[in-house]
Design a protein around this nucleic acid. Structure first.
Lengths: 242, 242
DNA sequence: TCTCAAATAACTGGATACAAAATGAGTCAA
DNA sequence: TTGACTCATTTTGTATCCAGTTATTTGAGA
């Protein structure tokens, strides 16, 4: 446990210190590492997180790992059961639906607030992102680009905390969908809806834009969730029929 | 540190264990304790939280205290600065305004969803709470009763996560206002607005009810915040002029 | 062979002790 | 007065030990 020669060991002082100028604490680094692995799906829903294993993998002691797990629990990424340990938390279908409803409400409001302030520059930037989404066909890039597109339209509302909250909901919901089923309704439909949204904003039709955005989110969610249900049923069938 | 005979020592296993049947972990108890003290204003904004002091006060070691602080940080109640320690976090005026705006959006939506399902029983319960608020003149009871009134009208919407989120925002915003200035516009106006809200729900006028609720929240916030500003300016003046 | 209970192992939660790192205050000299 | 330096305080991290709980295995009896 001394040499910490494991493959995934945390970066030495030099690397992270140099970039920020301010060295993060070990537990904060552990949080970042684990969050990344969870959000990326590397640690799938339901995975057991053993303190000792994580500690040795990362080359740290158990204390910062425990603190990291507590923090991740507060973020909703893991579930801590007393004396049983940490498990990467899942989200029920109901929870997912609710998350999307909250997003629809808050994003609709953000767009409404931003619209009077949106400028041609913002529209151009948003459309550039649509183009980027059309050209970058890697599935992994998509959800980030999609968020940036949306965020571009909300930014002028100047509601940083709301934006952060929505972003958190966005990431937390998205990770539950395996990559293959994320692109709801295909890229074409997404592009079409996104372009349409920008167009409505340009026209200055607040009500129509909000309506379109809300539908975009909720219908997307419905498709996504029904696919997830199908996938889970299939998995359950495979499991029992095996 | 051995005898743990301090006044605020955590309850022995017996008391909390008996009620739930499942003993909470020490760090969870510490979280509860600290959250309570912060939300009640006992630990005011900006207060330094010394690990060792808290640990000895509560009769526990530093480990659960640190874990608790990390969790509270994730909840937004304290700010952790590396190597400087934990401070009860404040909220800027901008943050407060934003919090109320989010509440207005989400609560408006909750009410809309709940309205078709609300029954005479719910109205009666809500009105009973209004009466209770009129008779219980203790300032400390008020914010809890107020929340219960609102929650009663949202409960049928059956959106537990949204309700929890809103509740968190509610508490987190409220604690920043010292007790004396909490009752915006006096009890009479509050009662009037609450009764009016119930009446609009009874009539089934969804749009009017939502509008009234939103205004109720946002105007209340504005009054509250302007008072807070005045208070802070006064404090600043006292400070420099002393 | 199957089932259930006791023994055992594994893991988490917590306490304590100690080392390391960083901050802030104070000191001292230029 | 300014600036560098030292030092006490505090947080952070590690190691070790122990207690309590859960999971697993073992073994006896049916």
């Amino acid at each position: 446990m001394t040499s910490s020669a494991a493959s995934g060991t945390l970066a030495g002082p030099a690397s992270s210190e140099a970039s920020t100028g301010r060295r993060k604490t070990t537990s904060a680094q552990v949080v970042d590492r684990l969050r990344e692995r969870i959000l990326s799906g590397d640690l799938p829903e339901g995975a057991q997180l053993r303190q000792e294993k994580l500690a040795s993998e990362l080359g740290v002691s158990r204390v910062p790992v425990r603190e990291a797990l507590h923090q991740l629990e507060a973020e909703g990424l893991v579930t801590l059961v007393t004396h049983k340990g940490a498990v990467v938390s899942g989200l029920s279908v109901d929870d997912l639906e609710e998350t999307y409803e909250i997003r629809a409400q808050l994003e609709g409001w953000l767009l409404e607030q931003a619209m009077p302030i949106l400028s041609e520059r913002d529209y151009a930037r948003a459309e550039a992102l649509v183009v980027e989404m059309e050209s970058d066909l890697r599935d992994e890039s998509w959800s980030d680009l999609n968020w940036r597109f949306h965020a571009t339209l909300y930014a002028p509302a100047n509601r940083p905390r709301t934006l952060e909250l929505v972003h958190k909901l966005y990431r937390n919901a998205y990770r539950h969908f395996p990559l293959p089923i994320r692109l709801t309704g295909g890229r074409e439909r997404m592009s079409r809806e996104h372009r349409m949204l920008v167009e409505l904003c340009r026209k200055g039709d607040v009500a129509a834009a909000r309506e379109h955005l809300t539908t975009h989110i909720l219908l997307g969610a419905r498709t996504l969730i029904s696919r997830l249900k199908a996938l889970r049923q299939k998995e359950a069938a495979d499991e029992s029929g095996r």
